[in-house]
């Protein structure tokens, strides 16, 4: 690299647009993708399903981002950044897909027309319109909870996305095909930490064990299908969450056993409250921070 060329590139800051960091371009995330809804699929159901998957990714990305500048190692700052960026990318695609089929909830009552669908949905829906599960919304008290939650959430999501690759909705299928590679990395990264903590020192074992005790009850509502999921699963569009439960249980049990951690009893199934918009105060608090600035300046462009 010659000194002069670097300075030149700086002064001609607007010559070329090809140098933005990955995933940070201006483009409509679904640009060039055929967003026609296949025959026989209810767009309202499809949009609602995309919100479920998109909100999980957005909320978990936000939780992981809280670790940035606070992680145990610099390598972990980079890894958490990667994982959060992947999830943010998935969220943007899924929210854009929901918007493309006209599912915007009440967001457009507040979001001006210049705000893209993904941002209208992320920033201008109220908490009761969010469709995320309690597993991703829970705050993490320490690094053990962060990685135990991450291994659980990414195991579930990987199992769902693996099946979604053959969804009849080509957009969902494409999002899933890209996402499985990301999620496999997230799961392995988190699982490696669970092994280190479970089989590390006495203190890390104790903390990992309490993390498992805190996270396991949050699995209760993950495998109960909503009506939307049942209809879409029957139409070959969505995955019935009940269908992935055994696989998830096997994987998580294996991780805990290898980590020398006791495996808690699998929680009894519970109604899918989060998927229906019922949330605890921690999600409202998280959204307050996420949405605050955008809502203060509804006419602004960023």
């Amino acid at each position: 690299m010659h000194e002069e060329t670097v300075y030149d590139a700086l002064t001609n800051a607007h010559g070329e647009a090809g140098h933005w960091a990955f995933g940070t371009g201006f483009d409509d995330p679904l640009a060039g993708v055929d967003t026609t809804v296949p025959d026989g699929i209810d767009p309202a159901d499809l949009g609602a399903y995309c919100l479920m998957l998109g909100d999980d990714a957005l909320v978990l990305a936000q939780r992981l981002t809280q670790w940035i500048t606070r992680a145990p190692e610099l390598e972990e700052e980079v890894a958490i950044g990667n994982i959060a960026l992947d999830l943010l990318g998935q969220a943007r695609l899924l929210l854009a897909r929901a918007g493309s089929v006209g599912v915007l909830g009440r967001s457009r009552e507040q979001a001006t027309a210049t705000i893209p669908d993904e941002d209208a949905l992320a920033y201008f829906r109220d908490v009761d319109e969010f469709r995320s599960t309690a597993l991703v919304a829970a705050p993490d008290a320490d690094f053990a909870q962060a990685v135990v939650r991450l291994v659980a959430a990414s195991t579930v999501r990987l199992a769902v996305f693996t099946r979604l690759r053959s969804s009849r909705d080509p957009v969902l299928a494409a999002i899933a095909a890209k996402g499985v590679h990301e999620l496999a990395y997230h799961r392995d990264h988190a699982a490696r930490w669970v092994l280190r903590l479970g089989d590390g020192t006495e203190e890390s074992h104790r903390r990992a064990r309490s993390a498992v005790e805190a996270v396991w009850p949050l699995l209760a509502d993950l495998f109960t299908a909503t009506d939307v999921e049942e209809r879409l699963a029957a139409a070959g569009v969505a995955v019935d969450p009940a269908a992935v439960r055994d696989e998830v249980r096997d994987v998580l049990t294996q991780v805990l056993e290898r980590a020398t951690l006791p495996v808690p009893a699998w929680p009894a199934g519970a109604p899918p409250r989060g998927r229906l918009g019922e949330h605890g105060p921690e999600l409202a608090e998280l959204l307050g921070i996420l949405q605050g600035l955008a809502r203060q300046h509804p006419a602004a462009t960023w």
Binding site: W20, A21, T24
Partner: peptide, 29 residues
């Protein structure tokens, strides 16, 4: 990483959030 990192959670669009996260991550690198 810290002065800008303080805006990661509140970035006013998802694209801006991704740009900022990628930047702060670069600084760690």
């Amino acid at each position: 990483m810290q002065p800008e990192g303080d805006w990661l959670l509140a970035a006013p669009s998802l694209r801006r959030k991704a740009v900022l996260l990628a930047k702060v991550q670069d600084e760690a690198g």
